[in-house]
């Protein structure tokens, strides 16, 4: 299938109906997690799901729009991190396309890849736009690292990786568990359903 054809298939009507739902899942699940006082963000489950079910480009769009819309609703600074969210969807889609969501430990690996990619996209934004600050408790880690002699960049990299990678691993596992719970005939309606079906070798 040519790139153009695949893109048209990825962005069919079902995907277009899925993306708003996924964006809202990102926002609402993030709030559930916050209400449960869990030490995670889990605000990208929808993005990863779209990456799995509809491919990397749909995942990219979902991530970008999540932050842009959050900027319209609550905090415009969130829009600055749209590229990070976009990368999450993109990498999730690529992992799925290469079979990395077929079982739980492959999904965990995908989570690590997503977390690392997201972190490396986030760090330059954090450092150049926000002086390395997140405005949250993670800044204490950065402070400690700075105080013990690390550079600003280095401190931020470590802080961002340590908060992002575990979060994305859990995100990937949750998304995998949900995609796996979908019945085959329902899954078939999405453009990239074959990413979820376990291959014969497992």
């Amino acid at each position: 299938m040519s790139f153009g054809e695949q893109l048209r298939k990825d962005f069919g009507t079902v995907t277009l109906a899925l993306i708003p739902v996924a964006i809202v899942i990102n926002l609402v699940v993030g709030q559930i997690v916050s209400a449960l006082n869990l030490p995670l963000f889990l605000d990208s489950i929808g993005t990863v799901l779209v990456g799995i079910l509809a491919g990397p480009w749909a995942g990219l769009v979902t991530g970008l729009l999540t932050n842009l819309i959050w900027g319209l609703i609550s905090s415009p600074v969130a829009a600055a991190f749209a590229p990070v969210a976009g990368v999450i969807g993109l990498v999730a889609g690529l992992c799925a396309r290469y079979g990395l969501f077929r079982n739980w430990w492959k999904a965990a690996i995908s989570g690590v890849l997503i977390g690392v990619a997201a972190s490396f996209t986030a760090v330059p934004i954090r450092v150049f736009m926000f002086g390395g600050i997140t405005g949250s408790g993670a800044d204490f880690i950065t402070a400690y690292l700075l105080a013990t002699g690390s550079s600003l960049f280095g401190s931020v990299i470590i802080t961002v990786l340590s908060t992002n990678v575990p979060d994305k691993v859990v995100t990937a596992l949750v998304a995998w568990a949900i995609a796996r719970a979908l019945p085959q005939r329902f899954l078939a309606r999405f453009p990239r359903a074959e990413a979820v079906t376990p291959s014969p070798q497992g």
Partner: peptide, 10 residues
């Protein structure tokens, strides 16, 4: 977490 998230997403 899962009992709250799974029904919502599905």
């Amino acid at each position: 977490l899962m009992p709250m998230v799974t029904p919502l997403v599905l």
